[in-house]
Design a protein around this nucleic acid. Structure first.
Length: 824
RNA sequence: GCCCGGAUGGCGAAACUGGUAGACGCAGAGGGCUUAAACCCCUCGGUUCGAAUAGAGCGUGUGGGUUCGAAUCCCGCUCCGGGCACCA
């Protein structure tokens, strides 16, 4: 065992061996306890980038660790292989997205292998695989049957750059496209939706039972945005200011029904369906102008007009009745009232809402306070706690009581009812793109949109297509694809050319992994029940809302319609979100051109050094700067371990015999302590400290070996065994090689070492002696020292005596064997 | 504006339930090995005063508090990061 550490050569050998021997393949009837580790499947963009390396290193560590712990670990990998980049490349070069994508998959797959990540490669799935398409479409049809998929005309976010509709989630707060950065426009289009809002409450409630980072759960709760309030009707006023009974009232939603006496106006969204009906002839021209200007505004412009509320609203020339006072108040249109939230209309209560206050001032409307602001209040609207005023039968009530009383009154008078609103909208899944899963519907002139029969699945994308520079989906021009017959009447029909948002594919792939070759169903209930929920899901924080929310929705919906096991309500029992990698302060990404290619490091220093650097640099959940990585230091440490184990380092240990030395005892104890620390650190995602523990122990071994009176050969062997075993999940190649050389066995199927509690206990410990809380001395004492003995020792210390200044301690706090604090 | 996190040496960080602040690594200094350099091995290192390997003071963003004892718990503030945001 004298040759030098050649990481690159030995890594290739081991990677091949794990693949050939199927070391990490697991069957669905494996007798070991099931454990499902999943790293988010990647979009195949070519060779792995540093973010991939980080993600798959963490996942791989866990797969190997749990395997050594005795679990039957399901470790699958797949590719999120539909999506825009392949289609953009096709538009540029003419290469079919499928061949383009498959080349990228081969590259990515190979680089994942090169970092030493191991998977059950029999279970690989790709979103664009015909079998996967079949079951994605099959699920769409089940959702359609269940009323969870529907077509509706809706104002949509249209990205002119991508020439497609975007989900709300894909529009950035400044109104630009998440992907292309183009300004998103508003258009009215008929689109396919998934009814995720039907699950809003369950998606909210069930966050309580999953072991996810609080931050992510919080983001999801924010996104769902539950709001409790009351919906009430404001009757339309006639010319004399009396309520009309021949037309329905304007419905508004409010969280503050207690402010009802302060309603001094009402506002409709410009898109509200009753605008025409409720506009007086005298105001029609102004209202029409206003609606046109709003429609052509981008989200950005609409936001930028903040602060000029006089220009952002227009009067309708009609009035509605404040049901609390019975008096008429004017009706307006304003662009800040959204048709997509609540009822698309609001009541204006300037006294308690700052935006309403500003609107009232801009339009010369009266302001009536209905909550008494605190003394010295010099602000405008007051939305805090306080007794009701100017509110007749509510006067004097505290805020919470007033809200209840007002809601009760509205309900008892038949004027309104309590209601819960959510910010969450239905999921728009239509994309006017080619490279996605076709939506399995046809449009029959006679029957309308009809689902294609199950026997026709999968509906596949044609190969003979031309990509136009306009970016239009070539499906619209492909006669063979378009042509269809109606499954109901048999008449001519046109196939749907919209494809599904790629988030649909990633909303159920983790279920398919449980049963990836099932030809009669997306997966069997039995297989899903065995593996799901995923025991540990690992991915980037950037998926905190979209992917994770959609996957949760799918899991619940599939369980409800009897496809997934009834008891399966959540897909991912535990979630870990790793931090991003930055370079020069910016997130590393292809579009920024600041990628560091892992391949170069793999060629030079090897996968183990790169993996170790990822583990060591920072706590895994933190964002990390590439500048902070110490690859060289990690490579140096691995070479140090190599020399220690192969005996290149001078040991002389094997020559020793006889009674155990102090070094023997301490090294043995250190080895058990190492085992304990690494185990605990793995279980709590503290990989940086696990690496530190290994380095520390290695340093200790070197020092002991050089000091006179070193350890016996057996002690050293035992210590090295433990060191290699606990390092195996982190640096799998080096440890596998050294282990095989030592004992001819395969380290990755060895059992995980257990720390002997007896050996964790030290015999001598440091007793800290404080005087008035300041450390004045440190004494080596027996670990079993008693309280009085510890105090005795402390008082005997010369340094301590000096600080006691002749006094005897007024109070003694003894925590043997670690600390004595003398108070004078 | 609302909701979450953070803040510790030159740098990344560690400190399990309040009990030795700075483990481990990077960068740095010194020494050993070597004809020499690299590699490798060992040692040092928060800061101030001090000749000191003597001793002492000060130190975990900031101001208070609780406690024998606070990086850790409580209250106020500052700064940084993230999420949501005309949401009625």
């Amino acid at each position: 065992m004298q040759d030098h550490y050649d990481a690159v050569a030995l890594e290739g050998r081991w990677q091949q061996r794990w693949r050939n021997e199927g070391t990490y393949e697991v069957d669905n009837d494996d007798p070991r306890p099931p454990y499902y580790v999943l790293s988010m499947y990647p979009y195949p963009s070519g060779p792995a980038h540093m973010g991939h390396v980080r993600n798959y290193t963490f996942g791989d560590l866990l797969v190997r660790y749990r395997t050594m712990r005795g679990d039957g670990v399901l470790s699958p990998i797949g590719f999120d292989s539909f999506g825009l980049p392949a289609e953009n490349a096709a538009i540029r070069t003419g290469e079919h997205p499928r061949t383009f994508t498959e080349a990228r998959i081969a590259e990515l797959s190979s680089s994942l292998g090169r970092i030493g990540a191991v998977y059950d490669l029999r279970r690989v799935i790709c979103s664009h695989d015909p079998e996967y398409i079949r079951w994605t479409q099959w699920i769409f049809l089940r959702f359609f049957e269940a009323g969870l998929a529907y077509r509706d005309s809706a104002p949509v976010n249209w990205c002119p750059g991508c020439r497609t509709v975007l989900a709300n989630e894909q529009v950035l707060p400044d109104g630009s496209c998440e992907r292309s950065g183009d300004l998103v426009e508003h258009r009215e289009l008929a689109q396919w939706f998934f009814r995720i809002t039907a699950y809003a409450q369950r998606l909210l409630d069930d966050t309580a039972g999953i072991d996810w980072p609080e931050r992510v759960k919080n983001m999801q709760r924010n996104w769902i945005g539950r709001s409790e309030g009351t919906e009430l009707g404001l009757p339309i006023a006639d010319a004399d200011g009396r309520p009309r009974h021949d037309v329905p009232p304007v419905e508004v939603f409010t969280t503050r029904p207690d402010t009802g006496f302060g309603i001094t106006y009402a506002v409709l969204s410009p898109e509200h369906p009753r605008v025409d009906e409720l506009t007086a002839p005298s105001h029609r021209a102004a209202v029409e102008d206003f609606r046109r200007s709003v429609a052509t505004q981008s989200e950005m412009e609409r936001l930028s007009t903040e602060g000029f509320l006089d220009k952002r609203g227009v009067a309708c020339g009609t009035s509605v009745i404040n049901p609390f006072t019975g008096r008429p108040v004017p009706l307006y249109l304003a662009d800040y009232v959204l048709m997509t939230y609540g009822t698309g209309a609001i009541m204006g209560v300037p006294g308690e809402d700052q935006r309403d206050w500003e609107f009232a001032v801009a339009h010369g409307l009266p302001i009536v306070r209905t909550v008494q602001p605190p003394d010295g209040w010099d602000g405008e609207a007051y939305s805090g706690e306080g007794p009701s005023i100017n509110s007749e039968w509510m006067d004097g009530l505290a805020l919470a009581d007033a809200i209840e009383r007002a809601a009760d009154w509205l309900e008892s008078e038949g004027l309104g009812q309590r209601k819960v609103n959510y910010r969450l909208r239905d999921w728009l899944v239509s994309r006017q793109r080619f490279w996605g899963c076709p939506i399995p519907m046809v449009l029959c002139e006679a029957c309308g949109y009809r689902p294609v029969p199950e026997s026709d699945l999968p509906i596949l994308l044609p190969d003979d297509v031309d990509f136009l520079p306009t970016g239009q989906s070539p499906l619209n021009a492909h006669a063979g694809f378009l042509e269809a017959s109606c499954p109901d009447c048999g008449g001519a029909a046109r196939r749907e050319t919209d494809t599904m948002d790629t988030f649909v594919d990633s909303s159920w792939y983790f279920l398919r992994f449980a049963d990836p070759t099932n030809g009669g169903a997306p997966f069997s209930g039995e297989a899903a029940a065995r593996w799901l929920p995923v025991d540990q899901y690992i991915g980037g924080i950037e998926h905190a809302i979209l992917h994770l929310m959609y996957a949760r929705f799918f899991t619940k919906a599939l369980a409800d319609i009897g496809v997934a096991p009834a008891g399966l309500s959540e897909p991912f029992a535990r979630l870990f979100t790793q931090g991003m990698i930055r370079l020069g302060g910016a997130k590393m990404s292809k579009s920024r051109g600041n990628l560091v290619a892992p391949e170069e490091i793999l060629d030079r220093q090897g996968a183990d050094a790169l993996r170790l650097a990822h583990l060591q640099v920072k706590p895994p959940q933190d964002d990390v700067d590439w500048e902070d990585f110490g690859i060289d230091g990690c490579a140096k440490f691995l070479a140090r371990v190599w020399r220690l184990v192969t005996g290149e380092a001078e040991t002389g240990a094997s020559a020793r015999s006889g009674d155990p030395t102090v070094a023997d005892l301490e090294i043995d104890r250190g080895a058990h302590r190492l085992t304990e620390r690494v185990t605990r650190d793995f279980d709590r995602w503290s990989y940086n400290t696990a690496v530190a523990a290994c380095m520390e122990f290695t340093n200790d071994l070197y020092r002991y070996l050089q000091a006179p009176g070193g350890p016996h050969g057996e002690t050293l062997d035992g210590a090295i065994d433990r060191l290699l075993l606990v390092m195996a999940p982190m640096v799998p190649h080096l440890t596998a090689e050294l282990w095989e050389r030592r004992c001819g066995r395969h380290i990755h199927i060895e059992p995980w070492p257990i720390a002997d509690p007896e050996k964790l206990r030290a015999e001598r410990v440091t007793l800290v002696v404080q005087v008035n809380g300041k450390v004045r001395d440190r004494l080596e004492v027996d670990a079993a020292i008693g309280e009085s003995e510890a105090v005795e020792h402390a008082l005997a210390s010369e340094r301590v005596q000096r600080h006691l200044d002749g006094d005897s301690p007024r109070r003694v706090i003894a925590r043997p064997p670690k600390l004595v604090n003398l108070v004078v």
